[in-house]
């Protein structure tokens, strides 16, 4: 966070307080430092107190808790999904590795074939030459 150059004007401070509430930490980050300077003034502090009054009332609405076993069940389910996901990832990587090995083997075979075939052609040719000679 950069150092504030100057405080926000009170009107802008009021608008932000009425939107985001009394906790400046929730305000847009680029305005927080300037807002903290403004908050030192009594008028700005009073605005924050007004918002805090609303928040104190809102906090009286407490959300119901999940059932006691929920977190335990959730942890088990998440761990199970993670294990399956990890196994699937490993399976895929193994598959990719196998595919790469097979393609490498195929490429090697093809390469060997390309080398061998000319030798055979050459041998046949030589053999043919001898045959031709014998026939004559």
């Amino acid at each position: 966070m950069s150092a504030p150059r100057e405080p926000l004007d009170l009107e802008r401070f009021k608008a932000l307080a009425e939107s985001y509430g009394s906790s400046i930490n929730k305000w847009p980050p680029e305005l927080q430092a300037s807002a903290r300077l403004t908050a030192l003034s009594p008028d700005a502090a009073a605005l924050l107190r007004n918002e805090a009054d609303l928040e104190a009332v809102l906090d009286q609405w407490v959300a119901p808790s999940p059932t006691p076993s929920f977190r335990e069940q959730l942890a088990k389910k998440a761990a199970s999904v993670a294990r399956r996901s990890l196994a699937t990832t490993r399976y895929w990587w193994a598959g990719i590795g196998l595919a790469a090995a097979l393609s490498g083997a195929a490429a090697g075979t093809a390469g060997t074939a390309l080398i061998v075939v000319p030798q055979q052609v050459s041998g046949d040719t030589i053999f043919g030459d001898f045959s031709d000679e014998g026939d004559d």
């Binding site: 985001y20 509430g21 930490n25 929730k26 305000w27 847009p28 980050p29 928040e55 809102l58 959300a63």
Partner: peptide, 9 residues
């Protein structure tokens, strides 16, 4: 913003 404490962004 209020209950979940998320900031503006």
């Amino acid at each position: 913003v209020h209950y979940q404490d998320l900031d503006a962004a």
